[in-house]
């Protein structure tokens, strides 16, 4: 929305960031699924250049900053910073080892800072209104605001920009208005497909990064997906592994093979084949993926799985029905 509705906020933020770190070249890496954002951004860049707000000797300041939009080809992994850099260099979107960190050896071997639109778009406000004004939003170390995305089985879905610190329950009930189906809400996944499922007991957790980390969950980009009591959480655990199967770049073993094995192991658990052994194996697999994966893709895939094991164990112990066995 920022890119489509207020591209200059992003351009200004990136230009300031570029000047701050002494960079003369910036890139906006955009998924190809956003053609309108692509068109608008390019028009905005052209206008900014024409007005000498970008390019050589910006407004006679002697400072230079060029900005360019590059399209990705749709791989989820290219949201990971090192894969993003590989993709920007024209290579396959494969994760790089860190260190060296991109800030030291990044794009084409040059020092590179990689930030999301949210951070960069906040820069003009902070510089215009001062750090205090920005810090007045939020709580603890999570300052500013986050656009939360309410989705799933929810009465009022959509985007809500809020300061950090509200509880999840307030968000779900006051803004979301409960489930769409009207049935009781059972589980909420926060932070995208790699985020943990929160049971009702955790819904009073304040929406900030630190509080979520404390309950082994992630706030991530603020995506919130609600489920009512008809959900089969074993299938949600399976979906996490399946998602990783589809999106894994294939570079590191825990993610590349672990995700496939994860789906297989969960299927065996559901079908009650050596259920206890396989549950232990699933736990070990999750540890291997968390400790052994090269990036957050494989490292976070176990989060939703583990949350199901910990908070919804009954769904992994259901008797096998004929329907399932088929």
């Amino acid at each position: 929305m920022v890119m489509e509705a207020d591209p200059f906020m992003l351009i200004e933020g990136m230009t300031i960031a570029g000047l701050a770190v002494g960079a003369t070249q910036g890139y906006i890496y955009l998924r190809s699924e956003y053609p309108i954002a692509h068109q608008i951004l390019n028009e905005a860049l052209a206008k900014a250049e024409a007005a000498n707000l970008l390019g050589e000797n910006i407004q006679g300041s002697g400072k230079t900053f060029h900005l360019e939009v590059r399209l990705g080809a749709g791989a989820y992994i290219c949201g990971e910073e090192t894969s993003l850099l590989e993709s920007l260099e024209g290579k396959r979107g494969l994760v790089r080892a860190k260190p060296p960190l991109p800030a030291i050896v990044g794009l084409f071997g040059q020092p590179t800072i990689v930030n999301n639109v949210l951070s960069l778009a906040a820069v003009p406000y902070i510089l215009a209104e001062g750090a205090k004004a920005y810090a007045d939003y939020g709580m603890g170390r999570s300052l500013g605001t986050l656009p939360f995305q309410l989705a799933g089985n929810i009465k009022r879905g959509g985007l809500v920009e809020l300061a950090f610190g509200l509880t999840l329950r307030e968000l779900l009930e006051d803004f979301g208005g409960g489930t769409f189906s009207g049935r009781p809400m059972r589980a909420v996944q926060v932070g995208g497909p790699l985020g943990a499922y929160l049971p009702e007991s955790q819904w009073d957790t304040p929406l900030d990064y630190e509080s979520f980390a404390a309950v082994s969950a992630v706030l991530g980009h603020g995506g919130v997906v609600a489920f009512d009591d008809t959900v089969d959480m074993s299938q949600q655990a399976r979906f996490a592994m399946e998602f990783c199967v589809v999106e894994s770049c294939g570079k590191c073993t825990p993610c590349r093979i672990g995700s496939t094995r994860g789906v297989e192991v969960i299927d065996r658990i559901v079908n009650d084949e050596n259920r206890e052994d396989n549950l232990e194996l699933l736990n070990d697999l999750c540890d291997t993926m968390i400790d052994g994966s090269l990036c957050a893709m494989g490292g976070m895939t176990p989060f939703p799985v583990k949350s199901v094991i910990n908070h919804f164990p009954e769904d992994l112990h259901k008797p096998v029905t004929e329907d399932m066995a088929s």
Partner: peptide
């Protein structure tokens, strides 16, 4: 094969021919 990429990297970094690559993604790599 355990798809460790050592061969690909040897071809790239040591030999410099770039004849090898990892084809496919994820489990199919």
């Amino acid at each position: 094969c355990i798809v460790c990429s050592r061969c690909v990297r040897a071809c790239e970094e040591v030999q410099g021919t770039f004849a090898l690559t990892i084809d496919g993604r994820g489990f199919d790599s």
